[in-house]
């Protein structure tokens, strides 16, 4: 059962967005997030239209987008609540010592929209891009950092190895847990401190086995001539196609429109 977990939240489908170069999607998400902070009022209509358009193109069911929101519900409410009560301005009504102001409500609304759109916008990226493609995109986009001696290739290699081993280690955790339960270990009862203490017989074997695996894997990589990023070629190099340039065009137009709306219309 634990084998079937999907990492990240990739939703396989055949859409233009799925086929876009991951670098475009990454930069697109960045631009969208920036635009959310540029808008002040009516500009959010443009943000909504853009997001809705992208969601329709992605062919990912809408409920998957909303799933990501559950995690931030709490944060969202707190942000909105405090924005509403702590912003000074024209008082609309009193509840006990809490004063709700018009400016506060507007600010809370804006914050809410920003957070919701931000999460949904990045969900579009993670839902249409496999974790591996994301790693590749990061490696390629961060390549300039190589000049200041940031080991970009090594970092992305570590990320992709981590992605490969998470399911294996999860399975192993499951196995060790069952083995320890069979010998009378108790992972369920007691207070928090006791529960944490009870995790020791699970964590020790897990760590030992993780180190052993790391050692084996390093040997296997060396045996297959791995010697860092130098002189390494790629089986699936990222290459821009016409589609990607078109997407960049759309993104540039969107960004320009965003800035124009803010500068000239003050929306």
């Amino acid at each position: 059962m634990i084998r079937d977990i999907t990492l990240g939240q990739y939703y396989p489908a055949d859409s233009v967005l799925h086929r876009l170069d991951p670098r475009v999607k990454f930069i697109g998400t960045m631009i969208y997030i920036i635009s959310l902070f540029v808008f002040k009022s009516w500009g959010y209509v443009l943000g909504t239209v853009f997001l809705a358009g992208v969601i329709v193109i992605s062919k990912v069911p809408f409920r998957f987008m909303v799933k990501g929101l559950k995690a931030i519900m709490f944060l969202l409410f707190i942000t909105m609540f405090f924005n509403a009560i702590f912003t000074p301005g024209e008082v609309l009504f009193h509840i006990w010592i809490i004063k709700v102001t018009k400016e506060g409500l507007i600010l809370a609304g804006r914050m809410g929209i920003r957070l919701v759109f931000l999460i949904m916008g990045s969900s579009v990226m993670t839902l249409t891009t496999t974790p591996n493609q994301l790693t590749d995109a990061l490696e390629s986009l961060l390549k300039p950092l190589n000049k200041i001696h940031v080991p970009v290739h090594e970092i992305s290699m570590m990320m992709s190895i981590a992605l490969r081993f998470i399911p294996i280690l999860l399975e192993e955790t499951d196995k060790i847990m069952k083995a320890q339960i069979a010998r009378g270990a108790d992972f369920e009862t007691g207070n928090l401190i006791k529960k944490v203490k009870n995790m020791v017989p699970l964590l020790v074997p897990l760590f030992i086995s993780a180190f052993r695996r790391a050692n084996d894997l390093a040997l296997a990589m060396e045996a297959r001539c791995y010697h860092g990023g130098e002189g390494r070629t790629q089986m699936k190099p990222l290459r821009y196609t016409g589609r990607d340039y078109a997407a960049y065009g759309i993104l540039a137009a969107y960004l320009a429109l965003t800035i124009a709306i803010r500068v000239f219309l003050h929306w």
Binding site: R224, C225, G231, Q234
Partner: peptide
């Protein structure tokens, strides 16, 4: 090697097979 899990590097079968040639600098 002995342990099949600990020697596969790629997250997709074909990518793992391509790992060695990539390291050797073979063209795409």
């Amino acid at each position: 090697f002995q342990n099949p899990d600990n020697q596969i590097i790629g997250t997709v079968v074909e990518e793992d097979v391509g790992f060695g040639p990539e390291n050797m600098g073979v063209s795409t």
